[in-house]
Amino acid sequence: MNQFITAVLTSLSTGAIYALMSIALVLVWRSTRVINFAQAGQAIFTTYIGYEVTIRSGSYWVGLISAILSGALLGAGIDRFFMRPIFKRVTSGPIVMIAPVVATLALLGIIQAIIGFIWGLNYQTIQAPVSTDGLKIFGSIIAFSPFNLMVLIAVTLSMILLTIVFQKTNIGLALRASAYAPEVSKLSGIRVDAVRTLGWALAGAAGGLAGMLYIPGSYLYPNAMDVLLVFGFIAAVIGGLDSLFGAVAGAMILGFAVNFSATYISYKLVFPTAFVILILVLLIKPSGVFSGKKGRKD
C-alpha cells in the first residue's frame, strides 16, 4: 500500500516537472512552429543564474524569482536576436527544412559551452528551501519529501496562473489567436511578432522554474536538463504538441507510466517505457491523444 502511495505521489511530482518542460516546448511550437531543442540549455542557464543568486543572497526564493525572470528575458532575447534573423535570412533552398532544428541545436551547444566557460563542469548543488527527506506516513518513511510537495504546489499554481492569462486576458486571446491563424490575427491588428516573442518569454520562464524545481533534488551541471527535454518532448507529443492542456495531461501520463514501471517492474525501465510510449503514440495517433478539432495545418 505504501509502495502504491509513494508511486502515485512521485508520479505526480515528476509529472509536474515534465509538464513545465512540455509546456515550454508547446508554447514555442504554437507560436513559431519550431521544436526548441535549446530549451534544455535556456533552462539550465537560468538555473545557474538562480544558483548564483541563491548563493549570493542566501535565499532560495530570490534565486527562484531571478531564474524565472532571467528565463523570460533570455527566451525573448533568443527569439528577437537569434531566431528572427535566421528565419529572415534562410528563406530559400532545401536548408529551410532543417535550419530551425540545426539552429536550436547549435544554440544548445553554445549555451552549454558558455556555462562551461563561466561555471565549469563540476557538479553543484542547490540547497532546497524545505526538507528533501521522505515524509512519514503510517509510521514508515516514503520516498516523497516536503520538497516534492512544494514542486507540486508551485507547478499547480503556475498552471492556474497560465490558464487565467490564456483564457481571461486580452494578451491570452492574442496568444491563442496568433497560434491558430497568424495571417488573420495580423489583419485584426495583433502584433504577431511581439506575441511570438511573448510566447518565447513565457516558455523561458517555465524552463527557469522547471530547473529551480528539478535541480535541488538532483545535481547542477551543463547537461542536467537534456533528459528532461526528451521527456518534455514525449509529453508534448502525447498531448499533440499544440495544446497546453494536452501537454500537462501528457506529462502526467508519462510521469505515471515511468514511475509505475520503475516501482513495480524495474528502475531500469524508465527510458524504454518512455521511448515505447513515444513510438506507440506516433504510430497510432501521431496528432496526439488529446487533439480534438483540427487546428492550423502546416
Binding site: 531543442f37 533528459v227 527535454l229 526528451v230 518532448f233 524504454p272 518512455a274 521511448f275 506516433l282
Partner: peptide, 14 residues
Amino acid sequence: GPYLAGTTLALAVS
C-alpha cells in the same frame, strides 16, 4: 521534420 528529430533524439538519449 520536428517529430522525426525529436524521436531520434529520444533514441540517442535512451
